[in-house]
Amino acid sequence: MTAPLLEVKNLSVVFDTEGGTVHAVNDVSYTIEAGETLGIVGESGSGKSVHVLAMLGLIPRPPGRIVSGSVLFEGRDLLKLSEAELRNIRGGRIGFVFQDPMTSLNPVLTVERQLIEPLTRHEGLSRRKARERAVELLDLVGIPSADRRIGQYPHQFSGGMRQRVMIAIGLACSPKLLIADEATTALDVTVQAQVLDLVRDLKKRFGTTVIWITHDMGVVAGLADNVQVMYGGRIMERGPVRSIFKQPHSAYTWGLLRSLPHGETRLTKRLYQIPGQPPDLTEPPVGDPFAPRNPFATPRCFTETPPLRQIEGMAPGHQVAAWYDLPALLAAEQGTER
C-alpha cells in the first residue's frame, strides 16, 4: 500500500479568548488515500471546518493556536512549513472552495482576475496563457459562453454560477486535494444537485482527492466514499458511507440520521431531534463529549474518553468512539417494544 495522501495525527487546536481557552479540535487523527472522497459531517462548532483551516495556516493566530499534532501531506508536515511554503501549497497542490459564493468572490474584481490569480501565482503562466486556461476552466465547470462571461463581475453571476466559479478557482492548478467547506450549503436544492453532479464528474475525470465538509448527511451520502462524523472537536465515527448509513455505531450519527426525513417519513410524524445543546468547548466535558445528550450513555461515558476503534461486528474500515454497543442496544429496545 502506498503512503496516504494526507495523514492527520493527533491534531489539537485551541482559541485563546477572553472567556477562556476554547478547545475547538481535540486529538483528531485520520488518513485520506489518493482519489478518496471523504465527507466530514458535524454541527456548527464541531471543529470540522476549523481543523482543515488550521492545517493550512488559515486560522488567525492569535487567538488560534495549534497545540499538538502533525499533518503529513505528500510526505511533508504542513504544520512545520513556513508561511511562504504554505502559500505555495495553498491554491496549488491543495485547492479550496468556500461556503458562501456570494461573499467569497471579490465584488470589485472581474472573474477573470480572480481566476487568473492562482494560475499566474502557482503555474507561472503568462497573463494570456492564464486567460486561455481560465476560459477552459469556466467551460469545464459548465458556465456557458465562458469567453464572454469571464470578463464580468461576480454580481453578474447567479449563486450557482458563482459556486461554479469558486470550484473553477479551487481546481485551477489541478490540485491533488480539494477541500470544500460547506460548498453547497448556501445554494438552492436544485442548484446543489447540479453542483454535486459537477463535482462527481470532475472527480471521475481528474481523480482529485476531495474533503467535503458539510452538515448535510444527504450530500455526503451522494458524494463521499468515506464519512467522518465530528462532534465537540472529536471524531465520533468514521467509515465507509454504506456501512455508516446502514448501521451507525455512534449515538450521535444515529441521531443525525434519524433527524433526516426519508422517503417513507409520513408528514404527520415529527422528526427526531437530538436533545440538549452542543458542549461548551471552553470547558470540554470529561469523557465522551456527546454523553450528556446521549440516551444510551453509560457511566463510563462520563469519566473516560473513548478511543476511535473498531468493535466487533463492524464492517472493515468502520470505527467508532463509543463505550456502548449501539446496534445491540437498539436491537434490545426493539425487542422490548414488540
Partner: peptide, 14 residues
C-alpha cells in the same frame, strides 16, 4: 474580515 480575503489567502496570495 470579508470572506473573499480568506479565499484569496486560500489560493496562496501573499
Amino acid at each position: 474580515e470579508r470572506e473573499f480575503v480568506q479565499s484569496a489567502r486560500a489560493i496562496g496570495s501573499g
